[in-house]
Design a protein around this nucleic acid. Structure first.
Lengths: 154, 154
DNA sequence: GACAATTATTTCAAGCTTAAAGTTTTATAA
DNA sequence: TTATAAAACTTTAAGCTTGAAATAATTGTC
């Protein structure tokens, strides 16, 4: 998926775009993963889960997390397991519906995330530093419209 | 990494861009992975390796593959192992430098990839269908310049 | 109220991924 | 030479990831 087009013809521009998109996100992702590991001894998936929870102080269901993060249910189970064992989040069985459990950041998890988020934002600013703020907004707009259009039909 | 910014202020536009970029590539990647599985009973990493080899009929070293695909050495070892056991690629020890081995697509691997690549290009065209060819070229240009700038300094 | 279907989650097997440590081969240099 | 370092790979341990199967609880529907 990181290789270039294997032929020429119509539709090539979108294929090229996809390849660039993927290479860019993989490059940035790798760098962020490495820094999270080095600076905070954590991983990107853990960071993602904590970021989602940070925005929802009331908590999220496992299925909410799975949908929001675009990963499978089973995947979330494992990551949350580890975060629980590290004391960063809690899983509280609900009275209303005993199938579900509400996942929340602990006090420690919240503090920990706030520190990571600040560093993270700085890193992204640095790594995307060659993109002007103006281009950033334009690009974001294009990607946003793509997403809402395409996801609407699945 | 898929969550939105957790505060407002300067540098937010780049963070937003990064989040969009990541969500877009994850969404498309998931769809392509699913189709490769369903239609060709293979995986994205296998497809990536085969795509790289398809462009290099003379073959590639393990380290070439690793560098080109932006993944670790050990990772490539495992994927190539599986492709070899499926008869899609060969690993040939070289006389010149016996540490290295040249990886090539087999006849079967080449045929197999050609079929997948055609379908793959169609899928990408479809999934990015809402991006105009013109926007696609513009976006590609922005991403290209970002990449070359940033990678130059590591 | 039974009971089938649905929903939320976990478990499982297989494969992907990384960083770090280990192996073998080649290059360097005293 | 003969160490010593460097390079190309592989192996390993831990964790991430998926899709599918299994559990458990809830919601129709009769």
């Amino acid at each position: 998926m990181v290789a270039g087009p294997t032929s020429v013809g119509p539709g090539k521009d979108r294929l090229r775009l996809w390849i660039r998109l993927l290479r860019a996100s993989r490059t940035i992702e790798a760098e962020l993963r490495e820094r999270l590991k080095k600076e905070f001894d954590t991983t990107l998936p853990r960071f993602d889960v904590m970021a989602a929870l940070y925005r929802s102080p009331e908590g999220m269901l496992m299925s909410d997390l799975s949908r929001f993060l675009l990963v499978s249910n089973g995947n979330v189970t494992g990551i949350v397991d580890r975060l629980v064992s590290e004391g960063l989040v809690t899983r509280a069985r609900r009275n209303g519906d005993r199938r579900t459990s509400m996942v929340r950041l602990t006090e420690e998890g919240s503090k920990s995330f706030a520190a990571m988020a600040a560093a993270h934002e700085g890193w992204v600013g640095e790594l995307l530093g060659t993109v002007s703020e103006d281009d950033a907004r334009r690009l974001t707009g294009m990607l946003k419209s793509f997403r809402s259009n395409w996801e609407g039909r699945e």
